[in-house]
């Protein structure tokens, strides 16, 4: 039995109710409690088979398997305690099956309507719905949550591409720093780093001036002193600055 029962895979069913209805109909049974007990094994065989094939079995199928097992065990062992509760679960399942079957049949009727009416083309507006590239048509004043979600989604998509605007980054070249130092470090005076950088000491300015001063120290134009660790660093022009500047201006 199970071989034949399993020839078809779970995928073709719209869930456990659909599978159950299929099995009941195949056995030419009515939707009754006893029928559930009859097809329970076949149902379990389907689920087991799907698991053997390593297919992911949706949890709904497993919940139904448990329900069927309990219904079947009750059919085998009548008069147990807690019978009423399980009887209710069978009853609920039967009602669910009847309802689902009714809707499935209604869906089949609608399918027939679909076959006919999707081939009737109204004049003229409706078919503009299908114009290429056009979004979902929404009658005026009928925006819904879905529209919002879609709008959000399209924003998220756009975010994937970087914005093409230019961000101005404040630029401070070493040359600019040296020019500023020439002013704030007059010949013959000893000036603290803090004073050279000035009151608006952003991190950028601090680094810029520090690197500029290092460069001047390297060239020997400026000498520095720091009396204690982490104390103020002070700078003073050397004689070389004046020499250098005079040769520069001569070259110029």
């Amino acid at each position: 039995m199970s071989g034949e029962a399993c020839r078809v895979s779970l995928e073709q069913f719209e869930g456990p109710l659909d599978l159950l209805l299929y099995l009941i109909r195949r056995e030419e049974l009515d939707i009754r409690e006893i029928s559930l007990a009859v097809v329970a094994d076949q149902y379990l065989a389907y689920v087991r088979r799907a698991e053997e094939l390593d297919l992911e079995v949706a949890s709904e199928y497993l919940v139904m398997a448990a329900t069927l097992t309990s219904i079947k065990s009750r059919a085998l062992l009548p008069g147990r305690e807690g019978e009423e509760e399980e009887g209710d679960s069978a009853e609920a399942l039967l009602r669910q099956l009847v309802l689902y079957r009714a809707f499935r049949e209604a869906a089949e009727d609608l399918r027939e309507n679909e076959s006919v009416w999707r081939n009737a083309f109204p004049a003229p507006g409706e078919r503009e719905r299908w114009a290429p590239g056009q979004g979902i048509p929404v009658p005026q004043g009928q925006f819904t949550i879905v529209d919002l979600l879609e709008a959000l989604e399209s924003l998220v998509e756009q975010e994937g591409e970087p914005a093409l605007g230019t961000l101005e980054r404040p630029r401070l070249t070493i040359a600019q720093c040296i020019a500023a130092i020439a002013e704030s470090l007059p010949p013959g005076r000893r000036v603290a780093l803090k004073a050279i950088v000035g009151p608006a000491a952003t991190r950028l300015r601090l680094i810029g001036f520090f690197v500029a001063l290092l460069e001047l120290v390297r060239r020997g134009w400026v000498e520095f002193r720091q009396t204690v660790p982490f104390g103020d660093i002070t700078f003073r022009r050397t004689a070389r600055w004046a020499e250098r500047c005079s040769t520069d201006s001569q070259e110029a």
Binding site: E60, Q96, Y100
Partner: peptide, 9 residues
């Protein structure tokens, strides 16, 4: 309610 009748997500 739809899921209660169809038995699936």
């Amino acid at each position: 309610a739809v899921e209660a009748i169809r038995g699936v997500d």
